[in-house]
Simulated scan of single mutants.
Amino acid sequence: MFRKPKIVVIGGGTGLPVILRGLRDQNADVTAVVTVADDGGSSGILRNYINVVPPGDIRNVLVALSELPDLYLDIFQYRFKTSDQFLAGHAIGNLIISALSEMKGGIFDAVQELAEMMQIRGHVFPVANEPLTLNAEFMDGSRLSGESEITKAHKQIKRVWVTPSNDEDGHEAKPVPEVLEAIKNADQIVLGPGSLFTSILPNLMIHDVAKAVCESKAEVIYICNIMTQKGETDNFTDADHVRVLNQHIGHHFIDTVLVNIQPVPDNYIDFQEWNEISQPVGHDFQGLRAQGCRVISSNFLRLRDNGAFHDRELVVSELMNRLHQVHD
């Protein structure tokens, strides 16, 4: 009897939904594990006012895996105009997730309820059932807390870690058990694409999550970013991205890296519109192989709206190829 391959995608930010939308239409059992350490924009305001897990990343992932008609999803994604004062900048979906979190007494049960309402194909698991705070130490020895503060500092990051936001007793951040179960049973674990320090690592900095990923028999695939990110990965090569991941976990745990080698045309990027990015990620294939990685270099590029993104179909096709090669 055919068993759908189990794919766990770990991350946050805008890159994750792109890949999930492609995986949704494959014959696979997809689980998205989403960071809860975002504190910017509408998510941050709601988090501060009503002490809920920031809903923005979760909202985008729910939409990516939903089979509802586009009109319903457009309403869920609608963001109030800045002239609306009281509701300025808030997405309707963020308000719904926050309300359900209060009703259900936590983000995890709220998201499961919403997943059913939104006809999700797959599973959406917030990595923890409480808001987490991202902390960073920079190369100059200084420290900051809060994702938005860390990114705004535009300083080279040495390391990051997470702590429970309501941490009065110094307890360790704990994942929801379903996340660990999904990782344990996965056939493939995908990291990214997304901000290295603020979308991917916050999930892996929960000790039990990192341990589960390292102990899993699944192939761990890292989708390397196409562009470097200001204040996070300036001047990074693909090998630098993997090195940071491995250093945070404590050993070489990335099995395979997907690297885009299609050049981004000069003068195509609108750096005012896409003000978080700075330049294409450099290549260091020797550095990747020295870390025990299988390197899959190909054209994964999609140019649109004067920005450089991953091409959903090309990336998902490669992920499915890897599944077949590993399990055939």
Rank of each mutant, 00 (worst) to 15 (best):
C293L: 13
R121S: 08
T163E: 04
A64V: 04
G13V: 13
E219Y: 11
V209C: 05
H310T: 10
E147Q: 12
D234K: 14
V160W: 03
D208V: 10
A290V: 13
D266R: 15
I19N: 00
G22L: 06
S148A: 14
Q156H: 03
V8S: 07
N94P: 00
I58T: 06
I96C: 08
R322F: 05
L201K: 11
L301R: 14
Q77Y: 00
I10C: 03
R143V: 14
A218R: 09
A64R: 03
I296T: 13
R143N: 08
R143C: 09
H283F: 10
S148F: 01
S216P: 04
L68S: 01
A91P: 08
V259G: 06
D328Y: 13
A239C: 05
G22R: 07
T198C: 11
V316R: 09
L65Q: 01
G292W: 03
A91Y: 01
C224E: 02
G307S: 09
L201P: 08
I189G: 02
Q286E: 12
T198I: 13
A239W: 08
A210G: 08
R24S: 04
K230V: 11
T256R: 14
V9K: 13
L191Q: 01
F2H: 15
E313T: 13
L68G: 00
E276D: 08
V111M: 11
F138D: 00
I277E: 07
G22A: 10
G194Q: 05
P177D: 02
S66W: 02
A239Q: 07
T133F: 04
L314S: 09
A182W: 04
N260H: 05
T35C: 04
I107G: 03
R47K: 11
D169V: 12
L46F: 01
N51P: 07
I120E: 02
N27V: 13
P164T: 10
A290E: 05
A128H: 05
H327P: 04
I206P: 03
Q26F: 02
N246S: 02
E67A: 05
S101M: 08
C293M: 09
Q188H: 04
L68M: 09
V33H: 02
T14M: 12
R312F: 04
D38N: 10
Q156R: 15
V257M: 06
N185I: 12
D167H: 11
H90I: 04
F271N: 12
I45S: 03
E102F: 11
V295G: 06
M118F: 04
G250F: 04
G170V: 06
V53I: 14
P69W: 03
F125I: 10
Q229E: 03
T31N: 03
G15C: 03
D187G: 11
F138W: 04
N27R: 14
R243W: 01
V259E: 01
K217A: 07
M118W: 00
P263T: 13
D74I: 12
M205Q: 10
R304E: 11
I249W: 04
W161M: 06
N299L: 15
F76D: 00
E181N: 11
K155P: 00
G93L: 03
K6S: 03
D169L: 12
N225V: 12
V33C: 08
G170E: 02
